[in-house]
Simulated assay, not measured.
Amino acid sequence: MNIHDGQGVSTGVRTALVIGGGVAGPVTALALRKAGITATVHEAYPAAADGVGAWLALAPNGLTALRTIGADKAVEAIGQPVPGVVMADGAGHRMAGFGGFTELPASLAMPRAALFRALTDHAVAEGVHFAYGKRLVSAEETPDGVTAHFADGTSATADILIGADGIRSTVRTLIDPQAPDPEYGGVLSFGGHATDSGVEAEPGTMYFAFGRTFIGYWQGPDGQLIWFAGLPTDTPPGPAELAQVPAAEWLAKLREVYAGHVPGERLLRHTDPERLITVGRMERMPSVPHWHRGRMVLVGDSAHAPSSSSGQGASLAIESAVELARCLRDLPTPTEAFAAYVGLRRPRVEAIGQNAATANKIKAGKAEAAAVTFPTPEEMFRPLHFHRIDWEQRVTVTA
């Protein structure tokens, strides 16, 4: 496969069903629109996901991809710049620091729900249609299209169907009933806000403290410290059981595990139970053999969720959405477009996912941080943050 500057040929795809309205869904619809393809986003929930999820960081490569489709300003308006990174051990010793790449935009921290809302509102303003309460149950293909059937008894037909429906993707199981399940990383994830903890944090810097346990934190817009941490366990409760445990009980367990940790002990001691966020099991997708079949294809977490340890989940989903649209714009059939898209994306996302799996082992106490050779922050972030998709170049498939 190679890329050139000549004019590509169209797949003949004019319409698309996008299943899932999280991060990948609206970005995919916007990218397809730029490629001349009309997409409708079908979301299982009855309304947009306001107030759902914890915080995330959107990396410079994700923002660069958003700029391609004109959505970067909408996200920058709701994000907090955090260009700096400091890495330390659990005893409070600084190991490395990095101020960010001056050539790139800063990473942005934001509530996940705020990102959903910003992307959805921007897509709607650009003319993308969203249909809510549409939980996909099956799909059937014809030589000319694909029809999605939803739990409410309705259906919709288009030239292609794109699964942007997350780590528990229904579309993935339709493409390949033998597709792997998400892989548990050995850690339950939590977040929270610490008040008057005495822990120092420079504005615009994200801190990572490794050791027997791990905690990350930064100073939020209101001056409070926002933290995220893991509780190692080999037998994680299911979502229903997880929700039944009172926040005060989880906080007590975390305080016990982080006793003596610098600065985890102080951050947790100054966190009230009502400010605790129970995120759930830290999971990632192992290698998914089949990203597409016929007129159906996966994008984002449905194909390559790397776990939150990567700091790249949302950014990779955005990149893949843009790359998929570019391939559909330029190649003569959906099959060729999907194959080119997978060839362009799989090496990058799987390498990042493997690195995140190593970080998960450290957080779960399955590997000593001291035994792992870490690159410098600049070496670590350069191949991640400088990745760029050139929309103006044309994709071709050659023998």
Rank of each mutant, 00 (worst) to 15 (best):
R266C: 00
G313T: 13
P83C: 01
P177T: 08
R135W: 11
S310L: 01
I78Y: 03
V187C: 02
Y132A: 00
T376K: 03
R14Y: 04
Y184Q: 01
P239S: 10
M380S: 13
A201L: 07
A252P: 04
V13L: 03
G353N: 09
R67N: 14
A314R: 04
G12I: 07
Q80N: 07
V27S: 02
I19W: 11
A16E: 08
H4N: 15
A71W: 03
R212I: 11
H149W: 15
T396K: 14
G365Q: 10
T28M: 11
N2W: 01
A156C: 10
R394S: 15
G300P: 01
G198Q: 12
G192H: 08
A57I: 13
G62A: 02
T376N: 04
V288P: 03
T28K: 08
A252I: 00
P332N: 09
S155H: 15
E350L: 06
D272T: 13
F208S: 13
P232D: 10
P83K: 01
S155L: 11
G92L: 08
G36L: 05
V187A: 01
R329F: 09
K134H: 14
N61H: 15
V349A: 02
P221N: 04
T40I: 03
V245G: 00
D50V: 10
V372M: 10
A57R: 12
T170C: 09
E274L: 06
F98Y: 05
D152L: 07
S308I: 15
F101N: 12
P232A: 11
A109C: 09
A77M: 01
A370R: 15
G300L: 03
L344K: 14
P182L: 04
E368W: 13
V52R: 08
T271G: 01
I362S: 03
A131R: 15
A240R: 12
T396S: 15
A123Q: 08
R382M: 02
E200R: 13
S320T: 02
R388W: 05
L56D: 06
M285L: 12
G70T: 00
F130E: 08
G70K: 09
H193W: 11
I37F: 06
G21A: 08
T173F: 09
R94Y: 05
A371T: 10
V349S: 03
T40K: 03
F190A: 10
